[in-house]
């Protein structure tokens, strides 16, 4: 086992453990903090895959923005969101069965997909993987269509948020 594998194993264990803690922590705030640790663990896994861009974006978007928003909303609900009861539902066996089945189906379909077994092409050593990613996102042979679709989706979400947030004059007048 080399150093990279050791780091990967450690990061994977930390993220899995903290992911379990997210759903089992009794206080919402602690669950949110465990979620931050999970996301950091995923960022470390991106680093071990030599994908520094995804690692940094993972921290920027998920830890810096989304986790902070979650914590923000949790802070507004202090005391309300504390759990004192039994944490295990009565029907947990059925839930576990469904989860295992779903996992098996997902892995099964992924294994059928040809991209799952395709060998990765190694970039030439002088190539910048960030540059290649940027080119792939805007080239017609690459991912320009999904990229543009995601942008349209985000713009729609933005406009929707503004529409909800704006206070209309006719409502105020009435």
């Amino acid at each position: 086992m080399n150093g990279l594998q050791a780091v990967f194993l450690l990061a994977a264990l930390v993220s899995l453990f903290s992911a379990a803690m997210v759903v089992s922590a009794r206080r919402m705030m602690h669950a949110a903090l465990w979620l931050v640790l999970t996301l950091m663990g995923v960022a470390v896994i991106f680093v071990t895959l030599q994908s520094s861009f995804f690692a940094v974006v993972q921290i920027l978007v998920y830890v810096g923005a989304i986790a902070i928003l979650i914590i923000f909303s949790v802070m507004l609900t202090r005391r309300v969101m504390e759990d004192h009861g039994d944490q295990i539902l009565p029907g947990w066996r059925g839930a576990a069965l469904v989860v295992v089945l779903l996992f098996a189906v997902l892995v099964g379909f992924l294994a059928l997909w040809q991209g799952f077994t395709a060998l990765l092409v190694e970039l030439p050593p002088e190539a910048d993987n960030l540059l290649e990613l940027g080119k792939a996102l805007v080239s017609p042979q690459g991912y320009v269509l999904p990229f543009e679709l995601a942008s349209v989706l985000l713009v729609a979400a933005l406009i929707g948020a503004i529409t909800i947030a704006v206070d209309r004059k006719e409502e105020r007048g009435g």
């Binding site: 931050v36 940094v56 921290i59 902070i68």
Partner: peptide, 12 residues
């Protein structure tokens, strides 16, 4: 990008 992402950790 790293500078900005890490700066966001301070908010936490």
């Amino acid at each position: 990008l790293f500078l900005i992402a890490v700066g966001g950790l301070g908010e936490m």
